[in-house]
Design a protein around this nucleic acid. Structure first.
Lengths: 198, 198
DNA sequence: GGGTTAGTGAACGGCGCGTCTCTTATTTCA
DNA sequence: TGAAATAAGAGACGCGCCGTTCACTAACCC
């Protein structure tokens, strides 16, 4: 029974357990109602073990989100079907917003005031970058095929779809559903980026 | 000295005082650090007077934001200069985000989880509607002049600029500056909506 | 002016914060 | 292998704020 009796965990082992507990709590009660004591209890850890690692709730949640993000980020290879590819990636982002990860972002937004802008930038970049990379790949593929205008490669445009998805999620209680994704795609993103070539 | 000795205020008088206090606190410490006791003290009111009117911090702040919004919303008449008009209205929105109003929105976002979607919709609509009305007016004017594509009148497109401004504000520590507004305008909004006619 | 309504101020129990202490498990190294 | 060092678990502590309650009083309404 080496499995069921972990004894007393330390270091990274313990850290992972705390992250999982935090994410589970996040899913259950949301960021606004997240209690350090609840996370500690769920992880069967002492509060001191939490505060030894992170100064406050915000940092713990950020760390937990980062930990989860490294597991989740997918590799994506454009298939040549521009609309299909975009739809797939957008649906993936929307789905992710329904997880504790989305709840972590909501919390991050709420506490953003007063955060030194370098810290905020660092974190935002960390979220945006992998997405931008994927969309950029799809756009570049489209440019090569002549279906996407080269001007669409500007970061502001590349980041447009994720920005609208995030806005949708933050602004409502739930992530965008398929219909919303289609609207964003057909009324905004595609008309803006495509050349008009079929 | 009828001014300096208000005596004991009641009803709407008191309510306004509480709103002003809440907005001032919001500006000073932000939503995350807003304390009901601080608002009460600042308004020289009893806590009970607050809880008699609103069940919690979130509702108080929503009410305060609504109160302020009725003062602030401008009438706007399109001048015929499409880019100039959009720029002006966008700058206005950005400026508004730097006020307690923006801080209220940040707080609203943070607590959105679990809110019944009708309530969330009602509030969101209340914010979006006046904006949509203004942008729709500008767009319609453009359509009439042949500078804007009729498809741009879809709500999703009309709401695009405000959505991106909100996203910018929520996602960073500050509202969009002039450069950011120009980028949004020249790389996203105008290319999407304009006919290509000068 | 007497009764009603509404606001003040203070006190209260409760909860979660962040710190600290005491005990115990795990690791390190003599 | 045994002792010292390190890190974790459990929980008590004081504090600040929550949301409620109560006794008192000012404002308003005939």
């Amino acid at each position: 029974m080496t499995e069921s009796t972990p004894g007393r965990r330390r270091g990274d082992d313990l850290e992972r357990a705390i992250f999982e507990a935090a994410l589970a709590e996040l899913a259950e009660v949301g960021y606004a109602n997240l209690r350090m004591e609840a996370v500690a209890a769920r992880a069967k850890a002492g509060k001191a073990s939490l505060y030894k690692r992170w100064p406050d709730r915000a940092r713990l949640v950020q760390a937990a989100a980062r930990y989860k993000a490294t597991e989740v980020e997918p590799e994506f290879e454009p298939s040549g079907d521009l609309r299909g590819d975009l739809r797939k990636v957008m649906a993936h982002i929307a789905a992710q917003q329904a997880t504790p990860f989305g709840e972590a972002i909501r919390g991050w937004i709420g506490e953003l005031r007063g955060t030194p802008s370098e810290v905020a930038d660092e974190l935002r970049t960390r979220i945006e970058h992998p997405r931008i990379r994927i969309f950029a790949k799809i756009f570049e593929d489209g440019v090569a095929r002549g279906t996407v205008r080269p001007e669409a490669l500007h970061p502001r445009v590349v980041n447009l779809a994720p920005a609208l998805l995030t806005h949708h999620f933050l602004t409502r209680a739930e992530p965008a559903d398929d219909a919303a994704v289609d609207e964003i795609l057909d009324l905004v993103v595609l008309p803006l980026i495509s050349t008009g070539a079929a």
